[in-house]
């Protein structure tokens, strides 16, 4: 029943187009493929990421929402929970049972009732509040832990600037 996941994703896309949610925008990478989304996250206010426009791809499995999508930032972003290749590593995108790092609390795992909107809300909250206990980018986590206003801030500011240049190209 791949159709059911396609229908659900179409419904979510239509809903997001009709009633956009503050903080991000969403669309398809290719209009013919409902399983591949492009989202742009606006760096949350009062954080180091403020002013940035971060583009990311969401790839949904055919058995969504039984299993979570994968998320990858295309815009360069320096963050403890985003791997250097852009892969987003937050617990709600992990299936229950699978716990490579062993740090995450079980309550934050993937649930079939998550939507693009609830995922984005988690990602935006991750930008505002990194979790350095289970880093995907160890260097960023170390810098953030040792001095969030030092090297870390500088690298984030560079990403924000680059993201603006990309967005207004």
């Amino acid at each position: 029943m791949t159709e059911q996941s396609a229908l659900l994703l179409r419904k979510q896309l239509a809903e997001l187009n009709k009633n956009p949610v503050e903080g991000f925008s969403a669309g398809l990478i290719d209009d013919d493929d409902i399983y591949k989304w492009e989202v742009v996250i606006i760096g949350p206010q009062d954080t180091l990421f403020e002013g940035g426009f971060f583009k990311a791809y969401l790839t949904f499995p055919y058995d969504y929402p039984l299993r979570p999508p994968k998320m990858k930032f295309i815009t360069e972003i320096w963050h403890p929970n985003v791997a250097k290749n852009g892969d987003v590593c937050i617990s709600i995108l992990h299936e229950p049972g699978e716990d490579k790092f062993g740090y995450e609390k079980p309550e934050e795992r993937w649930l079939p009732i998550h939507t693009v909107e609830t995922i984005m809300i988690s990602v935006i909250s991750m930008l505002a509040d990194p979790n350095s206990d289970s880093p995907a980018n160890v260097d960023a986590a170390k810098e953030w832990r040792e001095d969030p206003n030092g090297e870390f801030k500088k690298k984030v500011a560079r990403c924000v600037r680059k993201s603006q240049e990309m967005a207004f190209d």
Binding site: E95, P96, P106, E107, R109, W110, L111, P112, I113
Partner: peptide, 13 residues
């Protein structure tokens, strides 16, 4: 609520 999110709603629990 925590119990439900950890032990009831996730598949395979």
């Amino acid at each position: 609520k925590e119990f439900c999110q950890q032990e009831v709603e996730p598949m395979s629990k």
